[in-house]
Amino acid sequence: MAFNDFTAESPENFEQKCLCVLTLDVSGSMAGNPISQLNAGLLSFHTEIKDGDDEVLRDRLELSIIEFGSKVQCIQEPALVDNFDMPKLSVKGTTKMVDGVRAAIEKVEARKEWYKSTEQPYYRPWIILITDGAPDDDQDVAALAEEIKNGATEKKFVFLAVGVKGADMKTLSKIAQPGMPPTKLQGFKFSHFFRWLSNSMGTITNKQKGEKVAFEKPDWMEEFTID
């Protein structure tokens, strides 16, 4: 037998999951261009993962979508991108932002309970908040800030807040997890943000052993300072 290049066959293995809950503001102020840009961004995000060449990301990333206006609604339960069509958002009412993020935290906890009950290891879930306004007056921002701080410290999830033009960045800074300041979107560059998110999720789902994630510098981010 001749000495050849080494060749081998690999087994089929189940990819361990990474949950990302998109928590999206659909309040009245998002009407018009913002909501249509957000919908276009979501659609290209979905397509990029579904048709892209990162097979690990496709089999590993579970997406869930929660929208908040006057009401909070989970419009997509956690699922691989292959298993659902991206829903189209429409605007409705005010900004129940705190309730929306709370629902995302509950979604993360429920999914983690399922992972645990099936004994599968999982990657730390992500919660991404996108908002263009300030929360309604009845929203308890201080309590949410505490909840996020504790959740992040206890490594329950990673929380990233993204403000769109008009967003109350001071509030977002209050609720941001330590070490992960809120970022502000340039104009309505949702497609840029979601391309970045897709690359970043690819990076996260490929990381090993508590590796710090070095994100590439986003081209959608606007410089801002919190005074």
Partner: peptide, 9 residues
């Protein structure tokens, strides 16, 4: 040796 999270050891 693995932890609860997928990338812990």
């Amino acid at each position: 040796h693995k932890g609860t999270e997928a990338n812990e050891t």
